[in-house]
Design a protein around this nucleic acid. Structure first.
Length: 880
RNA sequence: GGGCGCAUAGCUCAGUGGAAGAGCACCUGCCUUACAAGCAGGGGGUCGCAGGUUCGAACCCUGCUGCGCCCACCA
């Protein structure tokens, strides 16, 4: 390096300290109103509704990931000149919240029944005011650019109004009905659950075979739930099963009860399984319920809502799990147990909230008839009005919407939207809309149940914007542009929003009715070894911990770099450290630029006033801008951020900054200062959507601009510098020459800092001679002094031919190491020759491969021949 | 039981027919005045196994093995 220009002071401290600056930066953005959307704006709209976290929720890595991606999407659009709405809010989370508050009451020795419904709901609101919504504060830490003026909660009055309107509309259209059916019942939460609130796991059980009846009329059934036999009302066999043909229509004695039950034929029964005979308990098994319905069987319930046996007799008052062995013991005493198999692994449903084993239970509940809604939801994706990214996941979506069962929407809870139905003294049923007075008078009462939480979250995209009112927000921002969420939630939440959105907006044009134009599905977060994060495994990484230690930007950058569409990502702390290092690099590069007088100019100097080095980096910059832009447009966050990482570090810092140092003392220093300023300005803009804090701090210092949040996105609106192929090739040669010399030096055992007298020559070198100062600076070479005598030499093949590097190492060179290296190179060249000649000797290859490919192979072959010749000569020339 | 996905360097992952890549980890040498949270150089992979298609396969086809996920009312 030659003389440096005098360095200038900078306002930037020596290192980026996120903890000191992030909060203030965020507050500045909010105060400036950057995140507040204007529904009357002329700008094109871009809108996202935040998947509402549970009011009981805390920020976990899955949130941090999704929020980072949504923030990146909205920040880019804002910079592109869109009117951006990112709408935040929370879900009241019926069961989850009620459970939390009930637990709190429990610690005071109270139950919700001690308070009564009204007081309990008040208590939940108190809880929400005090403890709820911590996650919203955590979003500020992360830097989420959401519109706080539009924050919503699913229990807000206006959202409740949307819920009631929707219920009434569906009810009037015959899409909501009340029916007694088998439902999933949680005996601990005391409520019905929909299918998706039930998790299946393979549990150990015991399969026992029980003989019903005696003598010729005996029939053996198998069950894992012996206690349910108390509620059996039939035994079913397959109609074509010859073993039992003679028994169909007869009755058999049901042990322990003294009852006699019929043997019926039903095609549902699999003759291959077990004994081919099934006990039928219509009130406690969905299949048996169907069989019971087909055969007009009685459906006695044998348990109460806590799953306690209610049948009079020795088992009355027992819990179902207590009753099971007791029933088996009683049967065994009668000699009716003919076989046992334990453990017997089978799928058992559990409450997704509290993990209690589900009890299928006959119950009167409200249902949504989903078929017509789901069909519309499927069509909207099939015809492309809503696009799913990545497209492979659309299949899962179709599987779901095409096979959806009716949806149980009533919950026997107190926290939630009360079902707007009143029952009259004479059995009348009235559904009441939001603007109607409920019927009053003697004997009228409202349905005590509340709606499934997903009913209101299914309305989220429309209810948050004011539906059913015809609001400016709906007109401007609906349909929303993108829904971003994990693929695990595709079914229950996304499909429901599609159904409800399309249904509520059916009077709009088809393309305006869908709730989102794009659905982006990211993967799930796992730990470093690919395992799911869970509290029980103890492998949970807290994003707040990372933000404390590495900063919000580094946390976000790590997540974005792992975000390949639809693919899970494994996280480890080292990566956050790597991202922090990148932030440091960016910090120092910008400091360097400011200290060296980088300038921000309205227009860059014309190309002829710039050096090849400057033209090269500008061309690369232009390419990176359009690539990053296209990648983000296509939701390729991992690729976009990795490209920025490598361009910034490998090209801008490792090469351009080093080359610029040389140019600061040359005649084009001003051009270089302008290019350097422009390059960093551009890179900071590109990085801002992903790492908003540090880029904001650096950019405002570097450019004096107001804020990156509202700065222009570099792609699209600006003409990008074109690639300069001549400069690209020339700088490529400089890099190759420098790298080869560095390797040579390393092999020779020369100290990195040691200036070595070197003579550069050859036709290849002549081509890059204009960059001699740079080559000497970067490879740490000195001019050949008086009495220069080459002790070692290196030949590097460049575009213009060979570049000869001769060094006078004054006896420091290690001959043995050099010989070893040359021999290795020779072996590599010989291998290359063999490979290429093999290909070129293959007639099939010559006939079929594209001409440019064949040419490339020829060039490689020729280069290998030349290498072998050269290396052989050098080996021969070595002393000793 | 049905469906889907994955298997590439020690680890986590890119790479959809023409010379095997990145980050981290590892080895060597350096505090070279933006940066040791750094710089320079380096080692390391019959791309899960077996067949097939092709002049040519990590990539396309078939089978196998091993993981993972989703859905599911087989007692």
């Amino acid at each position: 390096m030659t003389e440096n220009a005098p360095q200038q002071p900078t306002d930037l401290p020596n290192a980026w300290n996120p903890a000191d600056e992030e909060a203030a930066l965020y507050q500045r953005w909010v105060d400036a109103g950057y995140f507040t959307a204007d529904a009357t704006s002329e700008k094109p709209p871009f809108s996202i509704v935040l998947p509402p976290p549970n009011v009981t929720g805390r920020l976990h890595m899955g949130h941090a990931l999704n929020h980072t991606l949504m923030d990146a999407l909205t920040r880019r659009r804002r910079m592109q000149g869109y009117e951006v709405l990112w709408l935040p809010g929370m879900d009241h989370a019926g069961i989850a919240t009620q459970n939390v508050v009930e637990r709190q009451l429990g610690s005071e020795g109270l139950s919700r029944h001690d308070l009564g419904r009204e007081r309990f709901v008040e208590r939940v609101w108190e809880w929400k005011a005090e403890y709820g919504g911590k996650i919203l504060d955590q979003m500020r830490r992360l830097g989420d650019g959401v519109d706080w003026s539009r924050e919503r909660f699913t229990m807000d009055e206006s959202l409740s109004r949307a819920v009631q309107t929707m219920f009434k509309k569906l009810y009037d259209d015959g899409l909501i009905y009340r029916a007694e059916r088998i439902i999933n019942w949680c005996p601990r939460c005391h409520t019905a659950l929909s299918d998706i609130e039930v998790d299946h796991s393979d549990d150990d059980g015991e399969l026992v075979s029980i003989r019903y009846g005696d003598g010729d009329a005996a029939i053996v059934v198998a069950t894992t739930r012996a206690e349910t036999m108390l509620g059996d009302t039939a035994v079913a066999v397959h109609p074509d099963d010859e073993r039992y043909a003679h028994l169909i229509g007869t009755e058999v004695e049901l042990p322990l009860t003294g009852r006699h039950i019929p043997i019926v034929a039903d095609k549902h029964v699999d003759p291959e399984f077990g004994t081919g005979a099934v006990k039928v308990t219509p009130a406690h098994d969905p299949n048996d319920f169907e069989i019971g319905r087909r055969h007009g069987l009685p459906m006695p319930s044998i348990m109460d809502e806590r799953a306690i046996i209610t049948v009079p007799g020795p088992f009355q008052g027992m819990d179902r799990f207590e009753a099971r062995p007791a029933v088996i013991a009683a049967l065994r005493a009668q000699g009716r147990i003919v076989a046992e198999k334990r453990p017997y692994v089978h799928a058992v449903g559990h409450c997704s909230r509290c993990d209690t084993v589900i009890e299928p239970r006959l119950s009167l509940q409200w249902w949504v008839k989903v078929e017509p809604l789901a069909r519309a939801a499927g069509e909207a994706v099939r015809d492309g009005r809503t696009k799913i990214h990545p497209p492979e996941l659309a299949k899962r979506y179709f599987d779901w919407v095409d096979n959806m069962h009716d949806w149980t929407i009533s919950r026997q809870l107190w926290w939630g939207h009360r079902i707007p139905v009143w029952y009259g003294p004479d059995g009348e049923t009235v559904c009441v809309g939001p603007d109607e007075q409920p019927p009053s008078g003697e004997g009228w009462r409202q349905d005590p149940d509340v709606l499934d939480t997903w009913f209101s979250s299914g309305l989220w995209p429309i209810s948050t914007m004011g539906w059913p009112a015809d609001t400016a927000d709906l007109a401007k921002f609906y349909p929303t542009s993108v829904l971003s969420t994990g693929y695990d939630i595709l079914f229950f939440w996304v499909a429901r929003m599609m159904m409800f959105g399309l249904y509520a907006m059916q009077d709009k044009a088809d393309s305006r009715a869908v709730p989102f134009q794009h659905i982006y599905l990211h993967g799930l977060i796992r730990d470093a070894s690919g395992k799911k994060m869970s509290k029980s495994r103890g492998n949970v990484i807290d994003p707040l911990d990372w933000m404390d230690r590495f900063g919000a930007d580094a946390t976000r950058f790590t997540l974005a770099r792992g975000a390949n569409p639809g693919a899970d990502m494994a996280l480890a702390e080292e990566w956050a450290a790597g991202s922090r290092n990148f932030c440091t690099k960016l910090w120092n590069a910008t400091r360097f630029a400011i200290m060296n007088g980088a300038t921000i100019t309205r227009e860059l100097p014309p190309a002829e006033e710039l050096t090849e080095t400057d033209r090269w980096i500008l061309g690369r910059l232009g390419a990176v801008v359009s690539e990053v832009d296209a990648l983000v447009e296509d939701y390729q966050f991992a690729k976009a951020t990795n490209l920025l990482y490598h361009f910034t570090w490998d090209e801008l810092c490792d090469w351009y900054l080093e080359l610029a140092k040389v140019q600061f003392s040359g005649e084009h220093a001003d051009g270089t200062r302008a290019v350097l300023g422009h390059a960093l300005d551009t890179v900071l803009r590109l990085l801002h959507p992903f790492i908003p804090f540090i880029t904001e701090r650096l950019w405002t210092t570097l450019t004096g601009g107001e804020s990156l949040v509202v700065a222009r996105w570099p792609a699209g609106s600006v003409r990008l510098p074109a690639a300069d192929p001549v400069a690209d090739a020339r700088i490529g040669d400089v890099q190759k020459l420098v790298t080869e010399i560095r390797r040579f030096r390393s092999d020779q055992g020369l100290k990195p800092g040691q200036r070595v007298a070197t003579r550069l020559s050859g036709p290849g070198f002549a081509e890059v001679a204009g960059h001699e100062d740079a080559v000497r600076a970067l490879a740490r070479l000195a001019e050949p002094a008086e009495g220069f005598a080459a002790t070692a030499s290196l030949e590097v093949t460049l575009a213009g031919g060979a570049a000869i590097v001769e060094v006078d190492t004054s006896g420091t060179i290690d001959v043995a190491a050099e010989r070893k290296r040359l021999q290795k190179d020779l072996a590599a060249a010989e291998k290359e020759l063999k490979q290429t000649e093999g290909k070129l000797g293959n007639q099939g290859f010559l006939d079929n491969a594209p001409a440019d490919v064949v040419d490339k192979i020829r060039v490689r072959r020729d280069a290998a021949v030349a290498d072998i010749e050269r290396i052989t000569a050098r080996l021969a020339a070595l002393p000793g």
